[in-house]
């Protein structure tokens, strides 16, 4: 269980990194914290020809407030965002999600953007980003672009990231006054990828429920009020729409039931927080 060989580049500027990625095409990959990539290297599931280590690019290591967004650079470790002093005020959904996210030891190294790039359909950070309606800043040698989170995740570990591109930052909309947020998940063990994870937002636009672990990417849906006649039908239809599957950890039916029950509870909690 040792990685296949690869070239390694530790660029000092973003431009240098982008040039290398452009040159490497599909065979070059960014490495940041390595917590998702290195297991795949060790198992030789991933065999890039070049790794570009972006953790020395100071410009990417910032958490900034920009208007009504919190912008998290590609070099920001999960533990750094978790310890960010105003996290609870500005990103209460993430504050609730972090304890579910791996373990202290992996959050210490893993980056926020690395988890987004990995696009595991059960992962907490992609779910949070999609639920909050955030966005991803991508950049290649020639241009920058910004993609809505919902468009960024296109399938199982598949994203809109093109060859030669890297994630520069992710944008989390700041919590608005009078909004409620909640995060819950059911996994087999503490710290495991979720069987089903739910993130909920209650605000003046109504209720939104994000669901991970069922479809091949995190999904978010608007829902009617909890006491609306249509609520049960709606959440039930959402559960059915997610293309749930059996695997060794849970049946498709179990996942649908969790969407119904955990989804409702998470929305309830978000509504309570709002009030």
């Amino acid at each position: 269980m040792k990685p296949a060989s690869f070239d390694f580049l530790c660029p000092e500027t973003t431009e240098e990194a982008l040039a290398a990625l452009a040159e490497g095409g599909g065979e070059a990959r960014v490495i940041a914290g390595g917590q998702s990539l290195v297991p795949m290297l060790n198992m030789r599931l991933a065999r890039p020809a070049l790794l570009v280590d972006i953790m020395r690019l100071e410009a990417l290591r910032r958490i900034e407030t920009s208007g009504d967004e919190i912008v998290v650079g590609a070099g920001v470790r999960q533990a750094e965002l978790e310890a960010w002093p105003t996290l609870l005020r500005d990103l209460p959904l993430l504050a609730a999600a972090f304890p579910c996210l791996g373990h202290v030891q992996t959050r210490a190294r893993g980056t926020v953007c690395g988890s987004i790039a990995h696009a595991d359909p059960s992962a907490e950070l992609p779910l949070s980003l999609v639920t909050l309606g955030g966005a991803v800043s991508l950049r290649n040698r020639k241009q920058k672009r910004r993609v809505k989170a919902d468009d960024f995740f296109v399938g199982m570990m598949a994203t809109d990231l093109a060859e030669g591109e890297m994630i520069e930052a992710v944008h989390f909309p700041k919590a608005r006054h009078g909004s409620g947020y909640a995060f819950r998940e059911v996994g087999r063990r503490h710290g495991d990828f979720a069987i089903v994870a739910c993130a909920a937002v209650a605000d003046d636009r109504g209720l939104r429920l994000g669901i991970a672990g069922v479809d091949d990417r995190p999904r978010v849906f608007p829902l009617p009020a909890l006491d609306d006649d249509q609520f049960d039908d709606t959440i039930n239809d959402i559960a059915w729409s997610l293309n749930a599957r059996d695997d060794i950890h849970a049946s498709a039916r179990y996942r649908r039931e969790l969407v119904r029950s955990l989804g409702r509870e998470t929305l309830k909690e978000a509504s309570r927080c709002r009030a």
Partner: peptide, 19 residues
């Protein structure tokens, strides 16, 4: 006794989709 396996005894007939 995984939760999914146990749940087979707990859940009755599944609610079908509305359409």
């Amino acid at each position: 006794l995984s939760p999914s396996r146990v749940s087979e005894w707990l859940y009755g007939e599944e609610r079908p989709p509305s359409k």
